[in-house]
Design a protein around this nucleic acid. Structure first.
Lengths: 206, 206
DNA sequence: CGTAGAGTTGATTGCGTTCAACTTCAGTGG
DNA sequence: CCACTGAAGTTGAACGCAATCAACTCTACG
């Protein structure tokens, strides 16, 4: 969204593959990333043995803002599909902060936005039942995919989705089946067709 | 936590009473607050009719950071008990940002911290069952209360706690009963006595 | 063709919700 | 000071969503 802010900054580009980590939780924070193409997931290692997916990243998202706080990244970010990312190093950013003080405001706004988004998501996840959350998740993914048709290719596994939504994989499976039975979507593996856009906002002809 | 950052800033003080609002969701953002004394709750009005408590504020917490994003506050903050708050206006803060560019870094760190905290809370709430969440909630309240004994006076109602934890009031009641039966706490109305601090610091907390 | 991971289905169990009734507490006015 | 009132808190019974366990199919890829 606010990726434009960092246009003027010095940055390095790289093209990580599926499975690669941009960084892991606990690594020393040395900069943040702009995802230009591809997708990634953010994982937190909770107390104990099990991980929790706290979010997915899509093109134009900023990755690694969690690291400013105490100088180490607070989540692990793993690439889901071949991606292109810009990296803006901490030092370059700090230099730019002094050269262009108006960028501080932009960064503060960006962080505040992220804070609000997480807050709303958290509230939403606790109030709505699993089916509503799933449909909302799919709609958000759809919106992020620069839709050219009423279709969507999921970049992540069922296990990842279930983990993110806080439900069991089996439950997710049954929910997808339920949505299909209701005529809202069609799902073949990771290919999703939306069936409720017949007359509403979708602008394309497909 | 980072309240010290704003020591040098121009600020106005006020003493809101229980029930007062510092601001409501949708109000024009004109500054943020430092809670010096008392307590407050943050409420989000979700789509529909029902509200959701997304957090409680304790002394030294910063309130209103959610407003930087799109120039309006994104939550309503209501005072729970007689409080003292500093307000730092948006304009004063922006002036200070130009005068002391190092403050930008501090603010960015503060926001990043908040982001991480919300993220962890969100993950925690989705993974743990209600009893663990409640005990964790009580422990956090205890830690925020500058403990002088193993006791705690809850500033909020059962309804508020249940709403925040995402459970029914009746469930909360039964959980408290359960924790009491286990010998972890004693609860008389809003007065809580912790019974598990006898020998170890906290083996199962956190 | 064979294997391992991904995805699906069925049966059973349990945690937390809902609804309804009740008790306790705090504040108000007579 | 006591009686009244409404909010806050508690208890019980029944229901339902989602978890768990186990078995199975499908898909990708060597």
């Amino acid at each position: 969204m606010h990726e434009g802010i960092f246009k003027q900054l010095k940055k390095s580009i790289s093209c990580p593959e599926k499975g690669d980590y941009l960084f892991k939780a606990g690594d020393t924070f040395d900069g943040f990333y702009v995802l230009c193409q591809g997708s990634a997931k953010a994982v937190c290692t909770q107390s104990g043995d099990n991980d929790k997916i706290v979010g997915f990243y899509h093109p134009n998202n900023i990755i690694g803002l969690c690291g400013f706080g105490n100088a180490t990244y607070q989540e692990s970010v793993q690439i889901l599909s071949y991606s292109r990312v810009f990296k803006i190093s901490k030092d370059d950013f700090n230099d730019a902060l002094h050269a262009m003080p108006e960028m501080a405001g932009e960064m503060i706004r960006l962080l505040s936005d992220n804070l609000v988004r997480r807050q709303h998501n958290s509230a939403f996840n606790m109030m709505q039942d699993a089916e509503v959350r799933l449909m909302s998740f799919l709609n958000e993914l759809y919106a992020c995919s620069r839709p050219r048709s009423n279709q969507l290719e999921l970049p992540m596994t069922r296990v990842d989705i279930a983990n993110y939504l806080g439900i069991a994989v089996e439950t997710l499976c049954r929910l997808i089946k339920g949505l299909t039975k209701k005529g809202l979507i069609e799902a073949h593996n990771r290919h999703i067709v939306f069936r409720h856009f017949d007359n509403s906002t979708s602008s394309n002809a497909a």
